[in-house]
């Protein structure tokens, strides 16, 4: 068994698997989406086996505390990263101002086969947001207001945005460039109960001139086309702030050859009911990310660097830096100690 482990721990294999990993990484260069994941997974797995065997059998590693910590940490990072991929979850969601988070509204969901988070325990309510723009329409800071449970039956206000995600139950919600306006509508069908909902318009200001969408009421034969005429204070040449609370929108409704402009509160009689434009709202697109290994990955990698640092510190302390004038003498002295020359010191590190 030990003989097999020693073969697996060969440093020749280490270098070979490193080269293989390098090739895999190079193949992924700038194009990870189209590259098969196996070009990275296989060499990483081989390196993991090599590393484990080396930790068990190589006394140059397992009898040196710092070096041992470093190599165990490397192995730990590989294992944690693999576990992270198996349990991770990524998705997107668009939330309208005033709307609570609902897992069933997630889109573009990708998750590992072992994902088992507590998404059903995630509760928050989207509020308004602001996005700062600099001259030239360069996006600046995003401040998205949300309400999260305060643990005492109430709600606590929180501002997230850009590099400050909302973290609930391990799920991290990141604001994205994808955000825009929504028209709040109430559909009052003939003889039925009124229903209120929203029509999301495309991302703003990315699609400033395409603020349109369409909808077909239940039972109706013709779809309704909506176009939102916005007044947001947009200034392509100067600095401005996107804020739905300070914006106004006129909703243009087209159906059956008719064109009606609605202000908030305005209604229009359609084929099977009355449509009321309640007002302008906004929606924020979030990226959701979940990986239970994140903190452990950080701790493990920092421990690894610490181990490496301890190892080098000891080595450097035992072998002071050479001085310019004693180089020759030192080599002679080292040579006279039976071949324990300084070059050997270098290799021992």
């Amino acid at each position: 068994m030990i003989a097999v482990l020693k073969r697996l721990a060969s440093i020749r294999l280490t270098l070979l698997w490193m080269a293989l990993l390098g090739i895999g990484a190079a193949l992924s260069y700038d194009n990870p989406v189209d590259t098969p994941v196996w070009v990275l997974v296989v060499p990483l797995a081989l390196l993991g086996v090599n590393l484990l065997a080396a930790i068990i059998t190589n006394t140059r590693i397992n009898r040196r505390g710092g070096l041992l910590i470093f190599h165990v940490a490397l192995l730990g990072i590989v294992v944690l990263a693999a576990f992270g991929r198996l349990t991770h979850m990524e998705a997107h969601i668009e939330l309208v101002d005033g709307m609570g988070f609902m897992p069933e509204r997630l889109i573009n969901v990708r998750q590992g086969p072992l994902h088992s988070g507590r998404l059903d325990q995630v509760h928050f309510i989207q509020g308004p947001y602001t996005v700062e723009y600099r001259p030239g329409m360069v996006r600046g800071l995003t401040h998205s207001h949300v309400l999260i449970p305060d643990g005492a039956g109430g709600w606590e206000r929180k501002v997230v945005g850009d590099d400050r995600p909302l973290i609930l139950e391990g799920y991290r919600f990141y604001t994205t460039f994808n955000k825009g306006f929504a028209a709040v509508l109430t559909w009052m069908p003939d003889g039925g109960q009124p229903e209120t909902g929203t029509i999301h318009m495309p991302s703003y200001p990315l699609f400033e001139f395409r603020q349109a969408n369409r909808w077909t009421p239940a039972g109706a034969s013709e779809e309704i086309k909506f176009w939102l005429q916005l007044e947001t204070g947009i200034d392509p040449e100067g600095a401005w702030v996107l804020d739905a609370r300070k914006s106004r929108g006129t909703l243009v409704v087209r159906t059956g050859g008719r064109r009606v402009e609605l202000q908030p509160g305005g209604t229009v009689r359609l084929e099977h009911g009355v449509l009321r434009y309640d007002g302008l709202s906004s929606w924020m697109g979030y990226k959701l990310y979940y990986d239970p290994t994140l903190q452990w990955l950080f701790i493990t990698s920092m421990l690894g660097v610490l181990g490496l640092g301890i190892h080098f510190w000891k080595k450097f302390a035992n072998h002071p830096w050479p001085q310019p004038d004693d180089g020759g003498k030192r080599s002679e002295r080292d040579a006279s100690r039976g071949g324990k020359a300084i070059i050997e010191e270098g290799r021992v590190i």
Binding site: F298, W321, P324, G328, S331, G346, I349
Partner: peptide, 27 residues
């Protein structure tokens, strides 16, 4: 200057330090 072997030793010491800071940079 010391012999090449000693310089080699010194140069690799700096590369070992580089490895630590490269790792920290990636983290």
């Amino acid at each position: 200057l010391p012999p090449d072997e000693v310089l080699d030793h010194v140069a690799w010491r700096f590369m070992l330090l580089a490895l630590i800071f490269d790792s920290l940079m990636l983290i």
